[in-house]
Structures are given as structure tokens and as C-alpha cells.
């Protein structure tokens, strides 16, 4: 999807069209990111996908200063450290540089790196090793 402004998705007609599209394809949620904000459409919990066209639009405000450091590059199992380097775990207080590998997401036997999007000092690690994370989930926050 083109990385345009999130405002191009703020029209209710566009949101309704997207929701209908998700419904037709039996998709429960979609998360759209743009430089200035994000849009998340989620089918109501427990709602039958056959009977509802309703979705709950959530507009998430643009970049909170000094917050997101790294997010999940794919859905999978979070691993805070490489299995051969358990001593190298990044935790609260660790200083990281932009582009550093700060953790991994495991998809079966494959390890996908979680990359620091900026330099900073880690304030929180939001997942524990072994837990399932979704694509784009915020995994680390930091102070710059």
C-alpha cells in the first residue's frame, strides 16, 4: 500500500468500503500505517463475519515523542535474544543505535530480526520471550 497521508483514509465512505472489502474476504482486521498516523479496522469481537458490515475505526495519533523504538517485522514468537547468545539480551536501560538488531521474531525455525528504528535508551520491552506477537506490534520503547 502506498505510504500516503492517513487523512486519505479518514473519509467514512472510504472506511465503509474497506470494511466491506474485509468482510467479503473474511478478514478480521486491518492496520494501515502512514507517516502521519495509523488506521486500524477491527471486526467486533464475537460478531459473525457473515452478518455484520460494521467495523470499529480507531485513529491512532501520530508519533508520540520518544516512544516506539522497534516493532515486530512479522507475526511470530518473540525471542528477546538469539538462542546462541542469551547473554546479549536487550533490556530496560540498554542503549541501542539505529539499525541495531534488538530482538528476534521466530516463525517456525526461521529467526527474523527486530530492528531499532532510531537510537535511544530502552524504556520498556513490551513482550516476553515465547509469546506470540502480531505484525507491527510495538516491542520496544525508548527515550532518545
Amino acid at each position: 500500500m502506498k505510504r500516503s497521508s492517513i487523512s486519505s483514509f479518514s473519509n467514512p465512505a472510504v472506511i465503509a468500503e474497506l470494511a466491506a472489502h474485509l468482510h467479503r474476504n473474511n478478514v478480521a482486521s486491518i492496520h494501515i500505517e502512514a507517516a502521519d498516523g495509523e488506521l486500524k479496522l477491527v471486526a467486533p469481537v464475537g460478531a459473525s463475519l457473515q452478518t455484520t458490515h460494521r467495523a470499529t475505526p480507531v485513529l491512532i495519533s501520530a508519533s508520540q515523542p520518544g516512544s516506539l523504538l522497534a516493532k515486530a517485522p512479522t507475526a511470530g514468537i518473540f525471542a528477546a535474544a538469539h538462542p546462541l547468545r542469551p547473554e546479549r539480551e536487550i533490556s530496560t536501560g540498554s542503549a541501542v543505535a539505529k539499525g541495531d538488531i534488538v530482538a528476534f521474531v521466530k516463525v517456525g525455525p526461521v529467526l527474523v530480526p527486530v530492528i531499532a528504528e532510531k537510537a535511544g535508551k530502552v524504556v520498556s520491552v513490551t513482550s516476553e520471550t515465547g509469546t506470540l506477537v502480531g505484525y507491527g506490534t510495538s516491542l520496544f520503547t525508548a527515550k532518545t
Binding site: P83, L84, G99, P109, V110, L111, P113
Partner: peptide
């Protein structure tokens, strides 16, 4: 592979 690469869990750990 992605820009930062990817890997495999080694056999003894897997």
C-alpha cells in the same frame, strides 16, 4: 534475505 538478514534456530537449540 531482508536488509538486516535472517537466520535459523540451530539444531541443538531447536
Amino acid at each position: 534475505p531482508p536488509v538486516n538478514g535472517f537466520g535459523i534456530v540451530p539444531p541443538a537449540q531447536a
